[in-house]
Every structure is written in structure tokens, then in C-alpha cells.
Design a protein around this nucleic acid. Structure first.
Lengths: 194, 194
DNA sequence: GATTGTCTCCCTACTAGTAGGTAGATAAAT
DNA sequence: ATTTATCTACCTACTAGTAGGGAGACAATC
């Protein structure tokens, strides 16, 4: 039985890891070509332009993310547990370096230079992640697990910023453990004091 | 009296704004050339290689930052005021788009692809900014202005991550006001409850 | 006071290599 | 027989970087 990863998926996988490492301008078709042993022209067959390649890639990333977040909400009953699973996911990714940075966070930093089709998807990701966090926080506040000082959407924006900022600090200082140490502290503040 | 901005400073100014917009791989000597009306080769006269140009640029940025932070500590007596001035500075930069992102935060996201001389300076910036925040928080805790839940250095890491994450969210969502709305909330938590 | 050398700054013109992208042939699969 | 996937070969534009020269400023020398 063959590994059922199609060429186009392999291309997207490599491109994603290259983007996470160096952003939109930090990779080329030649890099992908070298990484999977295929000619540049063959990549153009699957993805005519770079903007389209990245657009499809971000679309796939968003779908995976939405599916993952949805399954967290369905598979874990308590909001606190859902939140914990979310940050544990990222902590694992950063520790084993499999996906040590959010694709959309990376692209967001280059927002001003992105093709519009990509930029709008990045905006969309930020909106939907903020939405997910808002609803988790709200649910947690309603059943008394969380003690929110502000509106759920404001707290969600704060939490999302902390997660992205913690990823950046971990990367800048070369210390994977810094991510969870920052984010865990932020989440502890949400827990009802006891 | 002429404007005493030397050519090399003009080069650094333009390069800085280009890096803030698109990162290390997001600009070229040709871009700078076009922006200040000088030939590419002349830029190489001032800065032989791109790595050296960016290295000098980050060095200058760090010196300016350290001087700015030092003058905040000397010019404002209360730690709470120092912190407020720091975030107000960034809020202004983001609102008027003069420096809508921290140079080192931008470069940190591309850490893995940076020349080592630049990468180590970026690490240095994160360390010294964290150090400044730590000492401000510590001073504020000692005179009762802040109520810290954790060690000052841990709180400082959290605050720094929030600032960078807030910059990213403001950029991703195209909403400059988001920066201060996130960061102000974070700082409010440090103030002693009353 | 004119000449000489040196230095800074910028220029034109160039290099080797890489960027994203295209044309057209080939071969396999449906 | 058409579609799909890959190839070789190529294109144009741009990348960082180099070679070498010219114009002016500033001394030191004659």
C-alpha cells in the first residue's frame, strides 16, 4: 500500500513548512522543487502562481484548524479543558518543531506585502480564532469555570495576542518552553480564584 | 541650514520602513535605490552586504530603544507612568503608521532564516526589553502600584508577548485601535484592585 | 599659490545566480 | 483519444554583489 499523499499535497506540506520558517518571501518554487524531487515546472502545473499556491495552502490550513477546534469543543465537555487542549496542541507543535509557528500569524506579519486573496484569508483566520476563543470563554464564564474581568470578546483578543506573542518570544529567544510558561500564566488568570 | 541627514542614515531609514513592512526578504537594494534616488552600487558603498546593512540597522534600533526606555525611567517617577508611556509610544506609532511594528519583532518571526549576526541582535533586544519591563514591574510592586501574581520576570515575559501579539492582531485585522485595547486591558490587571 | 595625493561619495556597466512563469514534448492513465 | 502529470528547455525580470572610474573636498608638499 502506497503512501496516499498526492503530489499537490506534498507541495503544500513543504510550502507550509517553508512559510512557517521564513514567510511568503522566504521560499521559492526552486526550494519546493529541491525538497520533493520534482521540477519547478511541475509545481506550476499544480499551482500556476505563487499567490494561488499560498492561497490554497492557507485555505487548507484554515479548514484543518476549524475542524480541529470544532472537534475540541465536541470532544471535551469543559471550556477550561477545551482551552487547555488548544494550548497543549501548540505547545507540542513548538516542542517537537513540527509546526513551530502558526501559518497565519507568520503571514500576518507580512500583511502589507501579501496578495489580497491571501491577506483576506489571514484576516478571516484571526476572526474565526477570536470567535472560537470568545465562545469558549463565554461558556466557561456562564458555568463559573472562568472569572472574566471584561467582555468575552475582549478577553479572547487578549488571549489570542498572548498566544501569538508567546510563539514569537519562544522563537526569538530560542526557548520552546517559554511558550507554555507565558500562555499557562495567562490562562491561570481566567480561572476562578480559590 | 540643511537637513543634516546623511545618505547612510537615509538608507537605514528607508530600509527600516521596508523591513517593518515586509521583513528581511521583503526588500532589496533596488527598493532602497528607488526610494532615495541613488544607485544600487552607492548603497553597497555604504553597506557592502545586506547582512551588514540590517545588522547596523538593528544596532541603531536597539540603541534608540535603550535610550528611549532609559529616558522614560529617568523622566517619569512612577512605574505605572513609565509603563503607560511605553505603550502610548507604540500606540502612537501604530496609529500614525510611522513605525507600525517593532523591527525586532518582525525579524524574530523570520529568525530561522536570518544571518547569525542579525539573529543574535534580535535575541539581545528581546532580552533587554524583557529586562526593562521586569525592573519596572518590580519597582511598581515594591511601592504598591502593581499587584503581581507571579515573579516580575514572568509577568514581564507575559506583558512583552501581549504587546507583540497585539501589534500582530492590529496588523492582521487592519485595526490600529486593537493594539491599545488589548494592551491596556493587560496593564489594568497589574494595577492594584480597588 | 599651484601641484600632488588621498579620501569620500556616487556613478555606469557588469557579473553570476535566482525569481516566478511559459512552451512544448512525452508518456501514462482513463 | 483525451486528460493528467511530468519533463526539458527556455524566458524575462530581478537578486546581491563587483569593477573601475569620475567629481569634489582636504591636506600636505613644492
Amino acid at each position: 500500500m502506497k503512501s496516499m499523499t498526492s503530489t499537490s499535497e506534498k507541495i503544500l506540506d513543504i510550502a507550509q513548512s517553508l512559510i512557517v520558517a521564513g514567510g511568503y518571501n522566504g521560499f521559492s518554487y526552486a526550494d519546493i522543487s529541491a525538497a520533493i524531487g520534482i521540477r519547478k515546472a511541475s509545481i506550476h502545473h499544480h499551482f500556476p502562481t505563487k499567490a494561488e499556491l499560498v492561497s490554497v495552502l492557507v485555505d487548507r490550513y484554515r479548514q484543518q484548524t476549524e475542524a480541529g477546534l470544532k472537534s475540541l469543543r465536541e470532544g471535551i465537555s469543559s471550556p477550561a479543558g477545551q482551552l487547555a487542549a488548544y494550548v497543549t496542541y501548540w505547545n507540542s507543535c513548538i516542542r517537537d518543531a513540527s509546526l513551530p509557528f502558526c501559518v497565519c500569524a507568520m503571514l500576518a506579519s507580512e500583511m502589507q506585502m501579501l496578495p489580497e486573496q491571501v491577506a483576506s484569508q489571514v484576516r478571516g483566520h484571526f476572526h474565526s480564532l477570536a470567535g472560537w476563543l470568545t465562545s469558549v470563554l463565554q461558556a466557561g464564564a456562564e458555568d463559573g469555570q472562568f472569572r472574566l474581568e471584561k467582555q468575552p470578546d475582549e478577553e479572547a483578543q487578549m488571549l489570542m495576542a498572548s498566544v501569538h506573542g508567546a510563539m514569537l518570544s519562544a522563537r526569538a529567544l530560542g526557548d520552546p518552553g517559554l511558550f507554555i510558561s507565558i500562555v499557562a500564566l495567562q490562562i491561570a488568570r481566567l480561572q476562578a480564584d480559590d
